[in-house]
């Protein structure tokens, strides 16, 4: 049985009519000892089957070590959303529940090759010249988390210096411990600086700019 219900598939197909360029979902998985790996792989393949513009590639995390290194994948399940270029957009843990919205939104943005950010935001982002790694911790039942994930992924799409990870908290307890995540969305920038809550575009970017200094 498909993971995605018929009505969800139809709605996604409808949205995918807007896809412009082709893109690729790269999934890292393994057979054992990974709670949502199997479902994440199936999700990757089901999504790819909903549009001729999307292809899926599945790598075994334990075997395809070179590929994991190339994509800087250090935990699984993982999905990379990329076009001819890898923009640094990653989903760690299954993007289910509310985060399904983030996955679909990133696919549409990557296909377009551009993020719909305001001209002021784009101007600010263009001044970033140092690598910034954004991690957005979520739970799948958090209605405000997708806004934060989508914003971070848009920044990654816009700037070649920014990479952005969605991290599903339940899948990676060692990380929620490490970063003391007790409320979501929690945004961690460059391993050290962080803030809680989904902020509007300009405020989100202000926090990012603070960390980039």
């Amino acid at each position: 049985m498909a993971l995605l219900k018929d009505e969800v598939q139809n709605e996604v197909k409808e949205r995918f009519k807007k896809l412009s360029g082709s893109l690729r979902l790269v999934n890292f998985t393994q057979k054992l000892e990974c709670h949502h790996c199997e479902d994440t792989r199936r999700l990757t393949e089901e999504i790819a089957s909903l549009s001729p513009k999307i292809s899926a590639k599945v790598y075994n995390f334990a075997i395809d070590k070179e590929k994991a290194q190339q994509y800087k994948i250090d935990k699984i399940p993982a999905i990379v959303v990329e076009a001819e270029k890898d923009y640094g957009i990653r989903f760690f843990g299954i993007p289910g529940g509310y985060e399904f919205n983030s996955l679909i939104s990133s696919i549409i943005d990557v296909s377009r090759g551009a993020a719909d950010l305001s001209p002021e935001s784009k101007d600010k982002i263009s001044k970033i010249t140092k690598p910034l790694h954004i991690q957005v911790f979520v739970t799948l039942t958090c209605p405000y988390c997708p806004a934060a994930v989508q914003m971070a992924h848009k920044l990654a799409l816009e700037s070649e210096y920014i990479t952005s990870d969605m991290i599903e908290s339940a899948e990676f307890p060692h990380l929620t411990n490490k970063y003391q995540v007790m409320g979501v969305p929690k945004i961690v920038i460059n391993e050290k600086f962080g803030f809680e809550g989904a902020l509007p575009e300009s405020a989100f970017l202000d926090e990012i700019m603070k960390a980039s200094k």
Partner: peptide, 10 residues
């Protein structure tokens, strides 16, 4: 927390 459905899992 002000959002139990968001944060209860922690």
């Amino acid at each position: 927390s002000y959002c139990s459905i968001c944060d209860a899992p922690f």
